[in-house]
Structures are given as structure tokens and as C-alpha cells.
Amino acid sequence: MEIQINGKLSTIPENLTISELIKHLGYRQGSIAVAQNQSCVLRRDYEHTRIAQGDDIEILAPMSGG
């Protein structure tokens, strides 16, 4: 299944949840925030939010800022 992850086209297994995607990609849960199609997905919803073909996923981490 093809989706966009942080603006790049990526191929991932079918029917993953956000939680499974994070694990699949090797991110540490609790140190990232996720948006699906420009809407925030709360941490408590990772387990039951499924990713669909063509989704636009943003995975953001804390960074320096002014």
C-alpha cells in the first residue's frame, strides 16, 4: 500500500494502525506526534486508527525553536 510519510511516497504493509506503523518505522512512541491527512491523531487513538491507501501521514518530533 502506498502512502505519503513526511512528504515522501512510501510503501507499507496493508491495514496497519498508526501504532503498528510507528513500530514498523522504528520510531519511539511518546517522543513523536502524528497527523493523518492534516488532522492530529492523539496518542490514545494510535491503536485503533487505521491507515488507508493514499493517506498523508506526518510524523513530527520535538525540535529546537524560538
Partner: peptide
Amino acid sequence: TVSLRRESVGQHNGN
């Protein structure tokens, strides 16, 4: 103050 930015797969600067 802090920000949120994209983190590439495999990089863990944010951590």
C-alpha cells in the same frame, strides 16, 4: 520555546 519538525526514519535527533 520548542517546535515540532519532521523526523526522518532512522534518525532520532528529536529523541
